[in-house]
Design a protein around this nucleic acid. Structure first.
Lengths: 200, 200
DNA sequence: CCTACCGATCGGTAGG
DNA sequence: CCTACCGATCGGTAGG
């Protein structure tokens, strides 16, 4: 998550970070191609040329945002997968972690989930790898659930897709005011996923 | 769904339709802002200026694609909601219809689900209305399920979101080869949604 | 459907 | 961080 990673001075990294925050918001709202470098600069109160003492290109900006998003998801899920709790509560915590990332970093999450395809090949592959790693962590959680006898022994692929679909779509509808918090949401969804919505 | 709606001659509407198909593909792959009018023209084998005897603007093209998408979803779900079957099979059929639209018209569905926000205000509102209508149809299905005693009597909002999240995300991962067909997919997902993934 | 072009804007740079 | 600008490309148009 930290963007002050390469030993910039405090002021430099503060300026840089403000640019990232502004770009995150704009890329999330209007898309990467729909956002101009001049809009980003204007939102920071400077001229477009001045951006380039802090960034090297527009795509560089996108990559750092997308990569931060990837790291946020991985960093939230990894400790849960590695923990020694039972499979059921790991599944619940995993979904809460995912929803937590989406709701507390809505712009970055949306850019990560949707604008990463605008990256050029080399950098897109780096992100593809992290996406694969994240999916594999979920595959692990589900296969633990099956081997512990908590989950029905079905093709785990579609359960994984079902869970991630629910978690990913959150940025499309979630409002900070009026909706359940991430923990409550994860409880609600995981109750349906595990026990079903049917009346018994 | 029909694009030959305003009485154009056969040839005109054929040319027009080819432009829509090409634009659908490109908007889906690279986004509305990431696609240039020249790319669309080139994919049809003509020059950019020549497009404008068939369309009136780039945004017009987007609107027609998005609106067709909206109509496809509404047209597939409406007869199911109006039918007199039991709530459980209407829910299953509704999800199959939704997944059917997404998988058989993947490009149009993706553009409808994601690029509609690029529309200017007036036309975005028209689409917002149709999205609301579609959501309300689902709300109806769920409330029937509750009143028929098929579904647990919980806040229906999150069940509706859960179902639509699963259905909408399909375009992100579905491959025509190797995956289940829409009916099978809907069965699989609806089984988990109704009965849960937990072992009992 | 093409030729020929338009004003505007794009991402980015040089030099201070 | 600004001034001043670059070549390229954008959506779109006039006239055939």
């Amino acid at each position: 998550m930290s963007r002050a990673r390469k030993g910039f001075s405090l002021n430099e990294s503060k300026s840089k970070q403000e640019i990232y925050e502004v770009a995150e918001k704009l890329f999330s709202k209007k898309g990467y191609h729909g956002t101009t470098i001049r809009e980003i600069a204007q939102a920071r109160g400077i001229l477009s040329g001045s951006l380039y003492s802090h960034i090297s290109s527009k795509e560089d900006l996108l990559f750092q945002i997308v990569d931060d998003g990837a790291e946020a998801f991985l960093g939230a899920l990894e400790p849960i997968v590695r923990s020694s709790e039972d499979a059921k509560s790991k599944l619940r915590q995993g979904l809460a972690a995912h929803i937590g990332v989406v709701t507390t970093q809505m712009d970055a999450a949306k850019v990560f989930l949707h604008e990463w395809t605008a990256l050029s090949e080399f950098r897109r592959e780096i992100i593809q790898d992290k996406r694969d790693r994240y999916e594999n962590l979920w595959a692990e959680l589900i296969s633990e659930g099956i081997s512990e006898g908590v989950l029905r022994d079905q093709d785990p692929k579609y359960l994984r897709i079902l869970i991630l679909s629910i978690g990913n779509w959150v940025y499309e509808w979630y409002k900070t005011t009026g909706d359940l918090n991430p923990e409550q949401l994860a409880d609600r969804f995981m109750d349906i996923i595990l026990n079903g919505a049917a009346f018994k």
